Simulated scan of single mutants.
Amino acid sequence: MKIHQSTYIKILIGITVSALILHFLILLKIIPYGIAWGGRLTTDQEMYTFETLSIIISLFFIYVLAQKGKFVKAIFSDKTLSVILWIFFGLFVLNTIGNVFAETTFEKWFAVVTLLNVLLLWRINMPITM
Score class of each variant (00 low, 15 high):
residue 2 K to W: 00
residue 2 K to V: 15
residue 2 K to E: 12
residue 4 H to G: 00
residue 5 Q to L: 07
residue 7 T to P: 02
residue 7 T to W: 07
residue 8 Y to P: 03
residue 9 I to Q: 02
residue 9 I to V: 11
residue 10 K to L: 12
residue 11 I to Y: 07
residue 11 I to H: 05
residue 13 I to P: 04
residue 14 G to Q: 07
residue 14 G to D: 06
residue 14 G to Y: 07
residue 16 T to V: 09
residue 16 T to W: 05
residue 17 V to Q: 05
residue 18 S to K: 14
residue 20 L to D: 00
residue 22 L to A: 07
residue 22 L to W: 08
residue 23 H to P: 01
residue 23 H to E: 09
residue 24 F to G: 04
residue 24 F to T: 09
residue 25 L to N: 02
residue 26 I to S: 04
residue 26 I to W: 02
residue 27 L to E: 01
residue 28 L to M: 12
residue 29 K to T: 14
residue 29 K to L: 13
residue 30 I to Y: 00
residue 31 I to T: 08
residue 32 P to S: 05
residue 34 G to R: 13
residue 34 G to C: 02
residue 35 I to S: 04
residue 36 A to T: 14
residue 37 W to G: 05
residue 38 G to Y: 07
residue 39 G to Y: 01
residue 39 G to V: 03
residue 39 G to D: 04
residue 39 G to T: 05
residue 41 L to V: 12
residue 41 L to K: 10
residue 41 L to A: 08
residue 44 D to E: 13
residue 45 Q to H: 11
residue 46 E to H: 09
residue 47 M to D: 06
residue 48 Y to T: 15
residue 50 F to P: 08
residue 50 F to G: 10
residue 51 E to N: 14
residue 52 T to Y: 08
residue 53 L to V: 14
residue 54 S to C: 14
residue 55 I to G: 01
residue 55 I to H: 06
residue 55 I to V: 12
residue 56 I to L: 15
residue 56 I to Y: 11
residue 56 I to C: 12
residue 56 I to A: 13
residue 59 L to I: 15
residue 60 F to Y: 10
residue 60 F to M: 15
residue 61 F to S: 09
residue 61 F to I: 15
residue 61 F to L: 15
residue 62 I to T: 07
residue 63 Y to L: 13
residue 64 V to S: 06
residue 64 V to H: 01
residue 64 V to D: 00
residue 65 L to S: 04
residue 66 A to E: 11
residue 67 Q to F: 03
residue 67 Q to E: 13
residue 69 G to M: 05
residue 71 F to D: 12
residue 71 F to Q: 12
residue 71 F to P: 02
residue 71 F to L: 15
residue 74 A to P: 03
residue 74 A to M: 04
residue 74 A to R: 08
residue 75 I to H: 01
residue 75 I to L: 10
residue 76 F to W: 07
residue 77 S to T: 10
residue 77 S to Q: 02
residue 77 S to G: 02
residue 78 D to Q: 13
residue 78 D to K: 13
residue 81 L to C: 08
residue 81 L to D: 01
residue 81 L to I: 14
residue 82 S to K: 10
residue 84 I to C: 06
residue 84 I to Q: 01
residue 85 L to M: 10
residue 85 L to S: 04
residue 87 I to E: 01
residue 88 F to G: 03
residue 89 F to C: 09
residue 90 G to L: 14
residue 91 L to D: 04
residue 94 L to R: 06
residue 95 N to E: 14
residue 96 T to I: 14
residue 97 I to L: 11
residue 98 G to Q: 13
residue 98 G to I: 12
residue 99 N to C: 15
residue 101 F to N: 10
residue 101 F to L: 15
residue 102 A to H: 05
residue 102 A to R: 06
residue 104 T to P: 06
residue 104 T to Q: 12
residue 105 T to Y: 01
residue 106 F to A: 14
residue 107 E to T: 12
residue 110 F to E: 01
residue 113 V to Y: 02
residue 113 V to M: 07
residue 114 T to C: 11
residue 115 L to N: 04
residue 116 L to D: 04
residue 117 N to F: 07
residue 118 V to C: 02
residue 118 V to Q: 01
residue 118 V to M: 05
residue 119 L to P: 03
residue 119 L to D: 01
residue 120 L to V: 08
residue 120 L to P: 00
residue 120 L to T: 02
residue 123 R to G: 02
residue 123 R to P: 01
residue 124 I to G: 04
residue 127 P to F: 08
residue 127 P to E: 03
residue 127 P to Y: 03
residue 127 P to N: 01
residue 130 M to L: 12
residue 130 M to A: 09
